[in-house]
Nucleic acid binder design. Structure first.
Lengths: 260, 260
DNA sequence: TCTATTTGTTAGATTACTCTAACAGAAATA
DNA sequence: TATTTCTGTTAGAGTAATCTAACAAATAGA
């Protein structure tokens, strides 16, 4: 029932985190501030405070200022750290805009386990200490994304030579197009070479790098391609199917990605 | 109220995803299978199916097999993809063990926005196409983590020269130890050089790369250090404070990390 | 066909959370 | 001091989710 590691729900974790934030900048935390910051009605805060006090995570008496206990402080800080790490990952690594990143992080923070948290922190330490990685991400990956409506993964040759291409038809250096695949044979997806719209649609349908597709039936101008993915047949119009680029080598089927 | 982008709750998304998984391997989906896979009682499944049917995400009639509608299929697939991406990120990049990664992904999947999802997918494409990045992560970062109880970020010189060190006292090449910091001055954390226990404790307390710390009062053998972080004073025993390594340059305070 | 087992549903309770509306206490103002 | 405003609480309702226990329908076995 109660989520995550603390034995409390995500909602209560949010209240703790909010109290922590407020106390970090003001001398006292009041019901009003909490309600405002969390965008809930003050009437929702009171019962939440009671629940927290019951669990001895805050000190709370009617109509009085709210304080975190030692235990509550620990959870609040952990939640806050989780939030920061996720938000930084989304903005600094993936390049998501701040607001969206905050939204996502705000919800995911309650479910990042301690070990994941610790590794994510290590990743930032590694990133800060490793200029090559920093450059690859800042320049290579970021450049890949900058032409938002353009074909996405695209590197400057100086950063990552194998990936370089000029967006004309030199695109598939070693990649195989889904539409050129032999019916009945299967490959792993290397990348999606589509505008943001089609790209999103394909990705949400499961066409992500590493996923295994089998061409069931080739299509034509009016006939959609049929491909099998995750055990399901899916229809793809030619103009969509064209965007799917495959790793040229038939994989060794030693791993999963197809079973679970 | 209803989470995420679909206008349905995480719980219902889980049911859809489960139905999707089952139909990917079996001809039919029954209440029993769903209950088993989700580890809930069959009595919880029936009302969930009613809620889903009401929203026209499944076709369901009493005591009959369950089918996804077109709309339901879309959501199920999107959730599934979100799950896969997160799980892959946790295992392939961060090196979390599979079971833990599945657990985390299972909950976070409901909150990863479409744009974040798309960028994460792009990251894998970039990774697959960029051998340098792959090497850095597989060798550099992974090596950093392999001695789990050891000092964490540690690179082999061949991969990332600046980071290389041999775990003797050559550790801080250019880094400043927190315990050597001038009282009153502030620096950003570069990394935590501690065993897994102390490391986890520090990170959960907010001592992550990039965070700004101010040394309030230096400590001694019996006297804990006091440092300010996120507006809060924290006590750190010497042996813990020793593990905190700082970027040597006083930062330009142009960004946040201290305000929000 | 009759019975036992499996499977699915219902009823009823519980928990957690939210809201609005009404009210009460405290502080600020006149 | 009296009154208005701000702040916090309570009451009452609603939603979503879960459970156990009892029951009903379908299937399988004898």
């Amino acid at each position: 029932m109660s989520d995550s590691k603390n034995g409390i729900t995500g909602s209560l974790e949010d209240y703790l985190e909010t109290i922590f934030r407020i106390l970090g900048r003001s001398a006292v935390a009041r019901v009003r501030d909490i309600a405002e910051e969390l965008d809930v009605s003050p009437a929702s805060v009171t019962p939440a405070m009671k629940r927290l006090a019951e669990k001895e995570l805050i000190r709370y008496s009617k109509r009085n200022y709210i304080e975190l206990t030692e235990k509550g402080l620990l959870i609040a800080r952990r939640t806050m750290t989780s939030h920061k790490l996720l938000s930084r990952f989304l903005t600094e690594i993936l390049g998501i805009d701040r607001e969206q990143a905050e939204n996502d992080a705000c919800e995911m923070e309650h479910f990042l386990s301690e070990s994941s948290m610790e590794r994510l922190a290590a990743f930032f330490e590694f990133l800060a200490a490793c200029p090559e990685l920093q450059i690859l991400i800042d320049t290579g990956f970021a450049n890949c994304l900058e032409g938002e409506t353009e074909h996405l993964p695209r590197c400057s040759r100086s950063i990552c030579p194998l990936m370089a291409h000029d967006d004309d038809n030199s695109e598939g250096f070693e990649l195989l197009r889904l539409i050129d695949l032999q019916p009945g044979s299967s490959r792993r997806i290397a990348r999606i070479n589509a505008g943001i719209q089609a790209r999103r649609q394909l990705i949400e349908s499961g066409f992500i790098q590493g996923a295994n597709v089998i061409l069931i039936r080739p299509g034509g101008s009016d006939l959609p391609f049929i491909v099998k993915l995750d055990g399901y047949d899916q229809e793809l119009p030619v103009e969509i199917a064209e965007c799917v680029l495959l790793h040229p080598d038939s994989q060794e089927m030693g791993e999963d990605e197809n079973e679970e």
